[in-house]
Simulated scan of single mutants.
Amino acid sequence: MEIKSNVTVIIPCYNDGKYIVEAVNSILNQTLKPEKIIIIDDGSNLETKMILKTISHEMISIVFQENQGVCKARNVGIDRATTDYILTLDADDYFEPTFIEKAVLVLNTNESIGVVGCLYKVIKGNITQKESVKPLGGTVKNFLVKNNGMACSLFRKNCWQEVSGYDEKMCKGYEDWEFWIAVLRNKWEMHIIQEDLFNYRMKPISRDTKALKDFDFELRQYIFLKHKPVFLEHYEFYALELLRINCNFRRKNNTLENSLNYEIGEILLFPLRLVKRLLQ
């Protein structure tokens, strides 16, 4: 008798035809299969649409919509899900085969856990980095200064319902960070499996890099104002963390300035030393 996982996997896809098959196969090859895989094509180009049309499996359904952003795509998919557990997966990333089995066990045995993530590896180009990324997880307090989770995680559908889904106003990025704060402030916790069970593809140009470069303050301000009560509840921790980060930044900046000054000095002195050597 096949064990039911009670999981629906939601995969938003926007112009990721190059990677979508690998993402889907990583779910089909899980030791514990999901009940359903819902791919939301968010207005992709023709090439990606053609690849999506070649994907055929009884477990998979594909929804085509005009481009409305990743939050809308996830919400559309999750709204269609009939299972208690939801796993989000970006179309250019993939899971190791045991993730669903191990993550479901956590949710099944601990009612205080709302979200399950894991350690993960970063792929740059075609090279998987040796170092693991180790998100902290835990309670909402751990998410006030930075995102201590991973976007692609397993969570209870009622966590999503409690916060009315992903915030579709966050079209410029950091939507996962805001979503985790919204969920965890309701006294849920995020558990991190201490194994590398996920692979995150880091592209030179992406929503994440653009958000950091162009919209970092705007997005942080939005998150702070939207969740101001929880920031105020932990104001001392929040303030001290910001002071610590600022001090570290100033220390590194000072070290860099001293190093640059030394290098510039060496460059300026080189001709004089050369002339002195020639005259000796």
Rank of each mutant, 00 (worst) to 15 (best):
S5Q: 09
P12M: 14
D16C: 11
K18G: 02
N25F: 02
N29W: 04
G43F: 06
N45V: 11
L46N: 12
K49D: 05
K49P: 12
H57Q: 05
E58I: 10
M59S: 13
V63F: 03
V63D: 10
Q65I: 12
V70K: 07
K72P: 06
G77M: 09
Y85G: 02
I86G: 03
D92V: 07
P97K: 07
A103G: 10
T109G: 02
T109V: 01
V122Q: 09
G125I: 05
Q129W: 00
S132A: 11
V133R: 14
V133Y: 08
K134V: 08
G137T: 02
F143H: 14
V145T: 14
V145G: 03
K146R: 14
G165T: 11
E175Y: 04
E178N: 15
F179D: 05
W180N: 12
A182H: 07
E189K: 13
D196T: 11
D196N: 15
F198K: 01
M202G: 06
I205T: 13
I205W: 03
T209S: 14
K210A: 09
K226W: 04
H227R: 03
L232K: 08
E233L: 11
H234M: 06
E236C: 04
F237D: 15
A239K: 01
N246Q: 15
C247S: 03
C247R: 10
F249E: 14
R250L: 12
R251C: 11
N253S: 03
L260N: 01
G265L: 13
L268K: 13
R273G: 13
K276C: 10
L278G: 00
